[in-house]
């Protein structure tokens, strides 16, 4: 109940903001009868309506993750974000091994197999992508050897 109500409210707010920002779109001299504003405002309006319906007639609550599982999810997101930033400056192999190992640990918390999975995936995927599929990946940053 409460999940749908909160989400409905969020949707309502976002769609109002969406409509508000649609009114700010600049129209150019090359205009057609509809223009660039009308369709986004229509979409925003329908979305807002759906948000209202969700608030008025909510479904039963789903079971949300609690405690350790919730922490595991946040760790996973943090690792993925860090991985996205690390991929360019640190090359493919090391960030991939770390990120894959951490994710593996979050699914099944055993350190040894997780570390092995990380290293195995990292090297295996690198060989596959680089040599079998010919994608331009960098194993280690060049500056480390320069």
């Amino acid at each position: 109940m409460i999940s749908d109500r909160i989400f409905g409210l969020v949707v309502l707010m976002v769609s109002l903001a969406f409509i508000a920002s649609a009114t700010q779109i600049q129209t150019s001299f090359l205009s057609d009868p509809v223009g660039p504003k009308a369709f986004p405002m229509l979409v925003g309006g329908i979305a807002g309506l759906c948000g209202l319906v969700m608030m008025i007639r909510p479904d039963p609550d789903p079971q949300w993750a609690k405690g350790r599982t919730l922490i595991a999810l946040f760790v996973a997101i943090a690792v993925l974000v860090a991985y996205a930033y690390a991929l360019k400056p640190f090359g493919f192999i090391i960030p991939t091994a770390i990120a894959a190992a951490v994710l593996s640990y979050q699914i099944s918390p055993r350190a040894g197999p997780a570390a092995l999975a990380g290293i195995g995936l990292s090297v295996g995927l690198f060989v596959l992508f680089k040599y079998a599929l010919d994608l331009g990946l960098v194993a280690f940053p060049k500056s480390w050897f320069g």
Partner: peptide, 14 residues
């Protein structure tokens, strides 16, 4: 799954 899912993630990223 503890090998498969990290693998899927890494393939998606690449």
């Amino acid at each position: 799954p503890w090998v498969l899912l990290p693998g899927v993630t890494m393939i998606s990223f690449v």
